[in-house]
Design a binder for these strands. Structure first.
Lengths: 67, 67
DNA sequence: TGACTTTAGACCCGATAGGGTATATAATAT
DNA sequence: ATATTATATACCCTATCGGGTCTAAAGTCA
Protein backbone atom coordinates (compact mmCIF):
# COMPACT_ATOMS: atom_id res chain seq x y z
CA UNK A 1 0.00 0.00 0.00
CA UNK A 2 2.99 2.33 0.33
CA UNK A 3 4.16 2.66 -3.24
CA UNK A 4 7.36 4.55 -2.53
CA UNK A 5 8.53 2.43 0.37
CA UNK A 6 7.81 -0.76 -1.53
CA UNK A 7 9.50 0.51 -4.65
CA UNK A 8 12.71 1.49 -2.87
CA UNK A 9 12.90 -1.77 -1.01
CA UNK A 10 12.28 -3.89 -4.09
CA UNK A 11 14.71 -1.98 -6.26
CA UNK A 12 17.41 -1.96 -3.64
CA UNK A 13 17.14 -5.70 -3.25
CA UNK A 14 17.02 -6.19 -7.00
CA UNK A 15 20.28 -4.26 -7.15
CA UNK A 16 21.72 -6.58 -4.55
CA UNK A 17 22.39 -3.85 -2.03
CA UNK A 18 22.01 -3.91 1.72
CA UNK A 19 20.36 -0.96 3.44
CA UNK A 20 23.79 0.07 4.62
CA UNK A 21 25.29 0.01 1.12
CA UNK A 22 22.33 1.83 -0.29
CA UNK A 23 22.54 4.48 2.42
CA UNK A 24 26.22 5.02 1.69
CA UNK A 25 25.78 5.20 -2.08
CA UNK A 26 22.79 7.51 -1.93
CA UNK A 27 24.37 9.78 0.64
CA UNK A 28 21.48 9.21 3.01
CA UNK A 29 21.57 8.04 6.60
CA UNK A 30 21.07 4.38 7.35
CA UNK A 31 18.34 5.15 9.83
CA UNK A 32 16.49 7.15 7.24
CA UNK A 33 16.59 4.30 4.72
CA UNK A 34 15.19 1.95 7.34
CA UNK A 35 12.36 4.27 8.28
CA UNK A 36 11.63 4.98 4.63
CA UNK A 37 11.37 1.30 3.74
CA UNK A 38 9.19 0.74 6.78
CA UNK A 39 6.75 3.27 5.40
CA UNK A 40 7.28 6.14 7.79
CA UNK A 41 4.87 8.84 6.71
CA UNK A 42 6.63 11.94 7.93
CA UNK A 43 9.86 11.66 5.98
CA UNK A 44 11.12 14.66 4.10
CA UNK A 45 10.36 14.75 0.40
CA UNK A 46 13.84 15.81 -0.66
CA UNK A 47 15.32 12.76 1.05
CA UNK A 48 12.72 10.52 -0.56
CA UNK A 49 13.62 11.96 -3.95
CA UNK A 50 17.30 11.50 -3.22
CA UNK A 51 16.62 7.81 -2.67
CA UNK A 52 14.36 7.49 -5.73
CA UNK A 53 16.98 9.24 -7.86
CA UNK A 54 19.23 6.21 -7.40
CA UNK A 55 16.87 4.46 -9.81
CA UNK A 56 16.16 7.39 -12.08
CA UNK A 57 12.86 8.05 -10.37
CA UNK A 58 11.20 10.87 -8.47
CA UNK A 59 7.97 11.37 -6.56
CA UNK A 60 5.02 12.29 -8.75
CA UNK A 61 1.26 12.41 -8.17
CA UNK A 62 -0.55 9.15 -8.87
CA UNK A 63 -4.05 7.81 -8.33
CA UNK A 64 -4.53 6.72 -4.77
CA UNK A 65 -6.63 3.66 -5.57
CA UNK A 66 -4.16 2.34 -8.09
CA UNK A 67 -2.63 -0.74 -6.62
CA UNK B 1 9.75 20.44 -13.62
CA UNK B 2 8.18 19.92 -10.18
CA UNK B 3 5.36 17.53 -10.89
CA UNK B 4 3.76 17.64 -7.48
CA UNK B 5 3.88 21.40 -7.02
CA UNK B 6 2.53 21.97 -10.50
CA UNK B 7 -0.20 19.42 -10.06
CA UNK B 8 -1.45 20.87 -6.78
CA UNK B 9 -1.44 24.38 -8.12
CA UNK B 10 -3.23 23.46 -11.33
CA UNK B 11 -5.86 21.35 -9.62
CA UNK B 12 -6.48 23.90 -6.93
CA UNK B 13 -7.07 26.57 -9.51
CA UNK B 14 -9.20 24.24 -11.59
CA UNK B 15 -11.34 23.74 -8.49
CA UNK B 16 -11.64 27.52 -8.18
CA UNK B 17 -10.00 27.65 -4.77
CA UNK B 18 -7.59 30.19 -3.36
CA UNK B 19 -4.56 28.98 -1.43
CA UNK B 20 -6.32 30.08 1.71
CA UNK B 21 -9.47 28.09 0.96
CA UNK B 22 -7.45 25.08 -0.05
CA UNK B 23 -5.41 25.28 3.14
CA UNK B 24 -8.57 25.41 5.23
CA UNK B 25 -10.27 22.54 3.42
CA UNK B 26 -7.24 20.29 3.45
CA UNK B 27 -6.44 21.02 7.07
CA UNK B 28 -2.99 22.27 6.11
CA UNK B 29 -1.38 25.58 6.95
CA UNK B 30 -1.53 28.40 4.46
CA UNK B 31 2.21 28.88 4.59
CA UNK B 32 2.76 25.24 3.81
CA UNK B 33 0.50 25.37 0.75
CA UNK B 34 2.44 28.37 -0.51
CA UNK B 35 5.79 26.72 -0.06
CA UNK B 36 4.52 23.51 -1.59
CA UNK B 37 3.23 25.24 -4.72
CA UNK B 38 6.49 27.15 -4.97
CA UNK B 39 8.30 23.86 -5.18
CA UNK B 40 9.99 23.77 -1.80
CA UNK B 41 12.00 20.56 -1.76
CA UNK B 42 12.13 19.83 1.94
CA UNK B 43 8.43 19.57 2.70
CA UNK B 44 7.18 16.62 4.68
CA UNK B 45 5.77 13.77 2.64
CA UNK B 46 2.74 13.26 4.85
CA UNK B 47 1.69 16.87 4.29
CA UNK B 48 2.25 16.52 0.56
CA UNK B 49 0.04 13.44 0.56
CA UNK B 50 -2.56 15.25 2.61
CA UNK B 51 -2.71 17.88 -0.11
CA UNK B 52 -2.74 15.36 -2.95
CA UNK B 53 -5.51 13.41 -1.22
CA UNK B 54 -7.82 16.35 -1.88
CA UNK B 55 -7.79 15.19 -5.50
CA UNK B 56 -7.71 11.46 -4.84
CA UNK B 57 -3.99 11.33 -5.45
CA UNK B 58 -0.88 10.34 -3.56
CA UNK B 59 2.86 10.47 -4.15
CA UNK B 60 4.21 7.53 -6.13
CA UNK B 61 7.52 6.84 -7.90
CA UNK B 62 7.66 8.03 -11.50
CA UNK B 63 10.34 8.31 -14.13
CA UNK B 64 12.42 11.41 -13.61
CA UNK B 65 12.79 12.30 -17.28
CA UNK B 66 9.08 12.07 -17.94
CA UNK B 67 7.79 15.51 -18.51
C1' DT C 1 -6.09 55.99 -11.13
C1' DG C 2 -7.24 53.49 -6.84
C1' DA C 3 -9.72 49.54 -4.12
C1' DC C 4 -9.50 44.77 -3.61
C1' DT C 5 -7.84 40.07 -3.83
C1' DT C 6 -4.34 36.80 -4.12
C1' DT C 7 0.22 35.41 -3.58
C1' DA C 8 4.92 35.92 -1.81
C1' DG C 9 8.21 37.04 1.72
C1' DA C 10 10.06 37.52 6.70
C1' DC C 11 9.88 36.72 11.77
C1' DC C 12 9.50 33.80 16.06
C1' DC C 13 8.67 29.44 18.26
C1' DG C 14 7.42 24.59 19.40
C1' DA C 15 7.69 20.07 17.62
C1' DT C 16 10.15 16.70 15.24
C1' DA C 17 13.03 14.66 11.36
C1' DG C 18 17.41 12.80 10.49
C1' DG C 19 22.13 11.61 11.78
C1' DG C 20 25.13 9.01 14.72
C1' DT C 21 25.57 5.40 17.72
C1' DA C 22 24.56 1.36 20.38
C1' DT C 23 21.80 -2.56 21.23
C1' DA C 24 18.39 -6.16 19.99
C1' DT C 25 16.17 -9.14 17.08
C1' DA C 26 15.85 -11.84 12.78
C1' DA C 27 17.63 -14.21 9.12
C1' DT C 28 21.26 -17.04 6.81
C1' DA C 29 24.91 -19.99 6.65
C1' DT C 30 28.58 -23.07 8.37
C1' DA D 1 24.65 -24.68 18.04
C1' DT D 2 26.98 -20.47 16.71
C1' DA D 3 29.11 -17.14 13.74
C1' DT D 4 27.87 -13.77 10.44
C1' DT D 5 24.96 -10.65 8.33
C1' DA D 6 20.80 -7.88 7.89
C1' DT D 7 17.23 -5.45 9.78
C1' DA D 8 14.74 -3.22 13.65
C1' DT D 9 14.48 -0.35 17.78
C1' DA D 10 16.05 3.22 21.26
C1' DC D 11 18.76 7.25 22.89
C1' DC D 12 20.68 11.99 22.35
C1' DC D 13 21.52 16.07 19.65
C1' DT D 14 21.22 19.59 16.09
C1' DA D 15 18.83 21.50 12.27
C1' DT D 16 14.71 22.76 10.43
C1' DC D 17 9.81 22.17 9.18
C1' DG D 18 5.28 23.97 9.74
C1' DG D 19 2.04 27.09 12.02
C1' DG D 20 0.73 31.69 13.13
C1' DT D 21 1.21 36.33 12.13
C1' DC D 22 2.49 40.45 9.77
C1' DT D 23 4.11 43.01 5.75
C1' DA D 24 4.96 43.50 0.84
C1' DA D 25 4.34 42.59 -3.77
C1' DA D 26 1.68 41.21 -7.69
C1' DG D 27 -2.55 40.65 -10.04
C1' DT D 28 -7.45 41.99 -11.08
C1' DC D 29 -11.11 44.95 -12.04
C1' DA D 30 -13.99 49.18 -11.30
Amino acid sequence: MNAIADYIKAQRKAAGLTQEEFAARSGLGLRFIRELEQGKKTVRLDKVNQALAMFGMTAIPGRKDDE
